[in-house]
Every structure is written in C-alpha cells, then in structure tokens.
C-alpha cells in the first residue's frame, strides 16, 4: 500500500525552488491562455514548447510524460470517438461505415478540446510533481488561506490510503466468516454492501478522536499560525506573478473584445 497520495518527486531544480504561489500563477496562466485563445494550435504549442520543457527543467520529465499519458489516454479515445461521430456541426465526411461517418469538424473540435484539457491537466502535474503538498499548503495558509481548509486538503491526501487499508481489513474479516466476494460483477457489487456500515461508523469514531487530538494541539487557537518550513520568495517572483496576472487578464480581455 502506498503511504500517501502525492505526486511529489523530491529533486534539486529551478522549478522545485520556485515559490508555490508563483507556480500556481503559472498554472492558471497556462490554463486561461489555452482556453481563451481562438488560435487553433496554441494549446499544442503551449504543451510542447512550454510545459514539456518546464517538466525537464524540473527534472521530472519522464514521470511527467508517463503520468500525463496514463491520465489522459482513456479520455482522449472517448473524446475522439464521440466527437468525430456525433459532432452536431459536422458536414465534411472523412470516411463512412454503415450509418456512421467520421466528420472533419468533429475531429478538429475533439483535437482542440483535447489539447486544452491536456494543458490544464499537465500544467497542474508540473506543479504537483515539483511541489510538496505541505509546502504548497503552508505557503497558502501564510497568505491567508483558512487553516481548516488547508487541513482538510492535506489530511485527505493521507487519509484516503488509510481508509483503503481499513476497507481491506473489513473485507478480509467478512470473507473469513464466509462472505462471498468472488464471482460476477453483481455478486461482487453486492458484497461491498456489508462493508459500508463498519467503514462509515468506524470512521466517524476516528473523526471524533482525531478532533480531540488536534484540539489538544491548539488547532483552533486564535493567534496567527507560523510555519516550520521556510518557503523562499523573492522580489523577482512577485514581479513574475504580476506579469502572469497581466497575461491572464490580457487573454481574457482579448477573448471578450477581439473575437
């Protein structure tokens, strides 16, 4: 069982050293530019000439390409099949088979949508591969994100694998008492039902204890929280973030007024 659900790969790199907020601003700039631009090839260019080089500068290129591929391949196949066959504005048939025909407009639409999603997902991947979740959260908390919200996000990352482990234990316990969990799909789905009660009620008890534990450590103390991790931030990066903000506004503006 993996211990946590985090993409982070620890390396020494320029991208790793950037302030998390700068990276977050970069991510949103990529996404907004990719989605607001009317130029067909822009998302493709952003991916191959922006995000791929960034991932290699961050020394996580291989993991970046592999994860992107795995995450998006099923979606792309689905997108292309559905849009090329059923895109409502399709008039130019490329090839036909019985009542189905693949339309050029559908393929084009699928490609544009696909590359936009590619930019969105892969830019977040660059952030997550190069930023430790606790660094990201403590930087955002320092800038005013409510502590409770940051806690929910980081604890979810850790608690999901624990819940999986617990579910497996309950299933094993019930199998050892004769519950049939093998067989066809319906049988297996049915076998999940007796899992729900113990898992949910057990988790509620855990939640109360965890609440006591974090209260005992002054979680709700009214003072301003500090952070153990020192997160670098430079004047240059502040300037960079302003620049990204302007880019985002320009991209949105050009979409509204120029098209």
């Amino acid at each position: 069982m993996r211990n946590r659900l985090s993409f982070y790969i620890p390396r020494q790199s320029l991208i790793h050293d950037l302030n998390p907020l700068t990276k977050l601003a970069l991510v949103f700039t990529f996404i907004i530019v990719a989605f607001s631009s009317s130029w067909y090839w822009l998302p493709t260019i952003l991916f191959f000439f922006g995000l791929v080089p960034l991932s290699f500068i961050g020394k996580v290129g291989k993991a970046f390409l592999r994860t992107t591929f795995r995450l998006l391949l099923p979606l792309f196949i689905f997108l292309f099949v559905m849009q090329s066959l059923f895109y409502p504005g399709g008039v130019t048939p490329l090839l036909s088979l019985w009542i189905f025909s693949v339309k050029l407009e559908g393929v084009q639409f699928a490609y544009l949508t696909g590359t936009r999603i590619l930019v969105m997902v892969s830019s977040f991947l660059v952030l997550l591969l190069t930023t430790h979740p606790s660094t990201l959260m403590s930087d955002l908390t320092r800038r005013g994100l409510p502590g409770a919200l940051a806690y929910i996000i980081t604890s979810t990352l850790q608690i999901i694998p624990q819940m999986q482990g617990k579910a497996n234990t309950i299933i094993d316990a019930q199998r050892s008492r004769g519950l049939d969990t093998e067989g066809n799909l319906f049988k297996r789905a049915g076998a999940l039902l007796p899992l729900v009660g113990p898992l949910v009620f057990g988790s509620l008890v855990d939640v109360e204890e965890r609440a006591i534990a974090i209260e005992a450590r002054a979680f709700n103390a009214p003072c301003k929280k500090t952070s153990l991790i020192e997160i670098s931030d430079t004047g240059f990066e502040t300037a960079l973030r302003w620049f990204f903000l302007l880019l985002m506004l320009a991209a949105i503006g050009s979409r509204i007024w120029l098209s």
Binding site: Q158, R217, K225, L228
Partner: peptide, 21 residues
C-alpha cells in the same frame, strides 16, 4: 493522534507549535 496533515514526524511534532504561532 497523528494529525494527518503532516508528512514527516518532525513536521508532525511542529503542528501544535505552528498553531500557537
């Protein structure tokens, strides 16, 4: 009793102190 929001023991022990500022 593990807070669940920290990734190392060292940070885990810091949790209470961070909350106290």
């Amino acid at each position: 009793q593990i807070s669940g929001s920290k990734f190392t023991v060292y940070e885990e022990i810091a949790f209470g102190l961070e909350n106290l500022g």
